[in-house]
Structures are given as structure tokens and as C-alpha cells.
Simulated assay, not measured.
Amino acid sequence: MRVWKAEAGVFLAVAFTAAGALGAVQPATGIPAEVVQLTQFGPAAGVAAVALLWPSRIRRRLAGSLPARPALPARRTPGGPERRPGREMWLLLTAPLVIALSAGTYAVTAAAGTALSTGPGALGHPFALIAVAQLAGACGEEIGWRCLFQPLVRTRFGPVTASVLVGAVWGAWHVRVFAQAPAYAAGFLLATVAMSVVLGLGLEHVRANRLLLAGGFHTLVNLGMLLFMDEESGAVLPMLLFGGACLLAAVPWVLRAPADRILAAPHGAR
């Protein structure tokens, strides 16, 4: 078995198991789920397990996750990856675009009398606390999904294929969604795959702050859904609209990516 398969297997086994265990103990901790869900730190536990077993490889996988040391701008070599200025800004702006599309469409199509939004003051906890906790939880997920698992799968597949695979596993990791109606689960899986494509293409060739960028995107989406949608009630319509909005938001990223990037060979299997 190639080592990358072992890395992936260990990461996924620990991420799924730790998430289940953390979700089981959360009620005993007294931490409100609307502030942060402890299950979000399951992928971080998976990263820790991989780091214990393959310490040299984990450094390579997580390269670019944290801020880079100050350095002179690197020149682009002929045939090298294109570095588009503002990529990080467009990535973060895609998150409110998804929420605007979701909430706007929901406001038009929802039945009369449906509660469409929740004011920050009605959340039961200070919004600043929720925002910080949501960012911490999102980073607990993204250090696994986008900083370890995406680069790992990317060694075998091109960026879009790798992103779709990561998004499908990311969606399946939210096991509880499958207790909802099939259409609800389908909308959720569509959303995770589409968001994974946005993140995968948005972070391709980004060499610093990958964790904060992925966590920031994730946090903005979570906060937007918390404030402007009611999918947590199990309602199917808002989840389907959310999945559709994520798909629409992913289309420009795919269209703007050069064909050689879409079909790019993997970085090299190890």
C-alpha cells in the first residue's frame, strides 16, 4: 500500500471517530452547540494522529497553512503556476455571495409567515463570542480537510477531481445529515462538494495562510446560515437553495481556471 493511502486512512478513521466521540460528550461540557460544535475538531484530531505517525510528511502536507516568513516576491518562471493577485479576496467574497443567493431566493420562495432571519441579539449569546468560536471550529475542520486531506488527494488527482472527492467525504463526515429527508441530505452534499471546489481552486498555489483563508470562508458561510436561513430545523427548501447557491458560486471558479490547471497532473504521488 502506498503511504498516501495509509495517511488518508488514518486521518479519516480518526476524524470520523473523534467527531462522534466529541459530539457524544458535548452535552456534558455545557458548551452550547449554537456557539461551537465540538465535532468540528474531529479533523484536527486526525491531523494530530497523522503527525504522530509521519512527522516529516505532515510538515510537507501542511506547507502554506500558516503565514509565510517575509520574503522577496518570487518571480514567475516560464510554465510555472500563475499567481493571480486578489485570489484570497475573491475566495472570501464568495462566501457572502453564497449567503446572498441562498437567503435572497429563500425570501422569494418561502411560504408566508416563515421566519427567515435571526437577529444577532436573539441568538442567546454575544455575537462576538459566537463569531470567534465559529472561526475556531471552522479552523478545526479546515486544518484537516483543506490543509491536509486536499493536498494529499491532490497528489493523485487534478484540482477539480480532488476537490470533488474531498467535498464528498467532507459531506459524508456530517453523518447526522443522513437522518434528515433524502432531499435535505442531497442539498447538503451538493453544497459541500461545490464549496470544496471553490476552496480547492481558490487555494491552489496559495503558499501562505491557507488555514485562515479556508477557516474564514467556512466561518462566513456558517454565520450567514445562522443569521439568514433556518435549515437547522430540517426544512428541505432552504437546504436545497443553499446547495444550488453553492453550485452557482462554484461555476465562475471553474470557468476562470485555465484548462491546464483544471487538467493539471497531480503534484506527484508519494
Rank of each mutant, 00 (worst) to 15 (best):
G46P: 11
E82I: 09
A110K: 02
G46I: 04
G113S: 06
V47G: 02
P120W: 05
P96K: 06
R69N: 08
T77R: 15
R87M: 14
L52F: 12
A49T: 14
R87G: 13
R76Y: 00
A110L: 04
L101C: 04
V108C: 03
G121H: 06
R83Q: 15
A51Y: 02
E88H: 13
T114A: 13
E82H: 07
A74D: 07
T77L: 15
H125T: 12
M89V: 15
Y106G: 04
Y106T: 03
V50T: 03
L62P: 05
L72V: 13
R60S: 14
P81Y: 04
G121P: 02
S56T: 12
R61M: 13
P120V: 10
A110F: 00
G104M: 11
P73K: 08
R76K: 11
R60Y: 05
P70H: 08
R76F: 00
A49Y: 01
S117G: 15
R76C: 01
P70D: 12
G86V: 07
T94F: 03
R75Y: 01
P55F: 02
T109E: 10
R84G: 02
R61Y: 13
A68G: 14
R59V: 07
G64T: 05
Y106A: 10
G80D: 03
A51S: 11
L123P: 00
G64A: 06
A51F: 02
R69K: 10
P73W: 08
T105S: 15
S65I: 05
L93Q: 04
G79C: 06
L92S: 08
L72T: 09
P73M: 06
R57N: 09
R69W: 12
S102D: 09
A107Y: 12
A103P: 06
R57Y: 01
A103R: 00
R57K: 15
